[in-house]
Write a protein that binds this DNA or RNA. Structure first.
Lengths: 337, 337
DNA sequence: TTGTGTAATGTAATCCATTACATTCAAGCA
DNA sequence: TGCTTGAATGTAATGGATTACATTACACAA
């Protein structure tokens, strides 16, 4: 592999000039710039980034931590993230924590050794100490997206979860539903708490009673939707919900399967609302009514925010993007009692 | 950030000894090793990998190129890949080519500059020149998984596609189906050609005629399954297939939606088989009969193979893993004519 | 013509870990 | 005792790009 020395030799100048021609073209004569350019082409040079990174103490690599690559919810966020990163000359190192906190630490350790310049967190399922420690001492560039930590003012891109949940409940209520349940994500998760709060406040606003058994916890996956769905559908008739708001589309689809198994018709007997609007939600049976998040835009925003942090720009601490209720075929008028 | 010098100072020895204590402990006295270890702990040292990589001309990073992160088919492969890589001290840089060949080149360019040590290709949708050029000249460590190139003897992990397709057709035939169609993936893709060959040879073996209109091309996505499904279901009754074998689960699910829209019942009027056994296939309506691939194992194999290549071990050129037909509710006896 | 300022370029130190080669020291043997 | 041998450790070169500082060259003014 040719080095900058070979280029300097071929262009008849010093390595410093070659380096400048590449990094600060305005500091070099038009003529030299051309000579360097053709020398680079001739010897087939491309810079050794390990050397550059060593010298510059940067890596142009951004770590993106997420709980589970297999979750389709994240794929579009990642696509958005990556696109912005590539345009700006950064690489993305995807870190799947698989709900395993040891992994997260390994990724955080890339920062002090200049293997990564910053981190985007798509999960709050990591030891809080990693974040606080870093954020206090060395001011590690860190941006959160979707999720957030309760007591930390980290730059964050997110949606208005209480509002989104309230809207879903409001819609169900407008269809005449009075017994509305919810299958949440993991409740150690602030966004799930927010959605439950939104659910509760809207239920109150609509003067609907909430049976404590109507708030059940899932883990965002198909199976938990199925299992918790079975539980809800097994409630005695007077307590059985006629509508269920799920914190993810996968759980909503699992729930709809539970409904089929129990001969409960969706939407005639039971209305279902999901969350995320994943690709699948248009192809399941019945098509799923869901709360859509601007996933691509969340990814883009988060990456832009992080790059701004790296460039020491002032950044807004909270960026809130809007959601949209997409009405499809899994919701209908409440059944007559 | 403390460097190896600080450790040497704290341990009262030279940097060389520190380095050796870390890399070749057997070359250092027990006593020194302990002194170094506690010095490292005291100053909080961790090696600067940019410097190490520069010196060693390696990066311990593996690039994994795939056509589309958003496709859930890949997620489990990636999980397997990553797990093996982490255990062996390698990092995985995920490259989404988004069917855009320029991106692929950018990732290949990481190799000569020691930013990556090897590549795993989960897609054949890249300029062939990248592969041939590299493989010839510098013998770039490259392993393919799932897909393969026709005329190149690259180390490859894959399934027996013709056999898997033949088994699916054989099963449909055993249910009494005689008009069996197939919705393929992109036909520039060798694995799709293989599956079509398997389909054709099994049709011949079962002495079933193949209407040329029964082989239609999709792109693995929901929508193409839906659209091509509409086409197949619009054929005149005597040519209309009673069973359709799809090259992906997403297309099969799209097809089932087309069937619903056309009031064709699955499986009573139409049997559907998918491919991949993605998580969703158990939760759609009806549950999907499909050909399961050992995705996790494919990922693991591919990574192990690549690491063997890097370590200059002899590696088998082809590793063929077995598939399994998973029978669920989307297939049934052929309707009486 | 000499002097001053500035733009262009060169020289060499620097980033940090690794490792070839050099040195030290002690044990073992004649 | 003197010499060999090998283990343990040290010294310094190395990898390749960047950049502070030094030098050169050239334009323009006095």
């Amino acid at each position: 592999m040719p080095t900058i020395k070979d280029v300097a030799l071929a262009a008849g100048c010093s390595t410093a000039t070659v380096s400048r021609a590449l990094a600060n073209p305005e500091k070099v004569t038009e003529a030299t710039r051309k000579r360097v350019a053709s020398a680079i082409a001739k010897v087939g040079y491309s810079p050794n980034l390990a050397a550059r990174n060593l010298r510059r103490s940067e890596s142009r690599t951004i770590v993106v931590l997420l709980p589970d690559i297999a979750n389709p919810f994240f794929s579009e966020i990642i696509a958005g993230l990556e696109d912005v990163a590539h345009r700006e000359g950064y690489r993305v190192l995807l870190g799947d924590c698989e709900h395993d906190t040891g992994r997260a630490k390994a990724y955080f350790d890339l920062l002090p050794t200049n293997q990564a310049d910053g981190i985007i967190l798509l999960t709050a399922e990591i030891p809080l100490s990693l974040v606080t420690q870093q954020a206090r001492g060395s001011q590690i560039p860190l941006v959160m997206a979707c999720e957030y930590f309760d007591h930390l003012a980290l730059p964050t891109v997110r949606i208005d979860n209480p509002l989104a949940a309230a809207r879903a409940v409001e819609y169900l209520s407008s269809l005449g539903h009075r017994r509305i349940a919810t299958i949440t994500g993991p409740m150690q998760n602030p966004i799930c708490i927010d959605r439950v709060k939104g659910y509760q406040s809207e239920m109150a606003r609509q003067q609907l009673a909430v049976n404590p058994g109507w708030i059940v916890e899932g883990d965002f996956g198909f199976l938990s939707g199925y299992q918790q769905g079975q539980l809800l559908l097994a409630l005695p008739p007077e307590a059985r919900p006629s509508a269920i708001f799920c914190h993810s589309d996968e759980m909503a689809i699992g729930l709809m399967k539970a409904a089929r198994d129990a001969s409960v018709r969706v939407p005639e007997d039971l209305s279902v609302i999901g969350f995320d609007n994943i690709g699948l939600s248009e192809y399941c049976q019945p098509e799923l009514t869901t709360v859509s998040q601007p996933r691509d835009e969340i990814g883009r925003c988060a990456m832009r925010l992080l790059l701004d942090v790296l460039r020491k720009k002032q950044v807004p601490h909270q960026q809130v993007l809007s959601t949209q209720l997409i009405v499809r075929a899994s919701t209908a008028q409440a059944p007559k009692p």
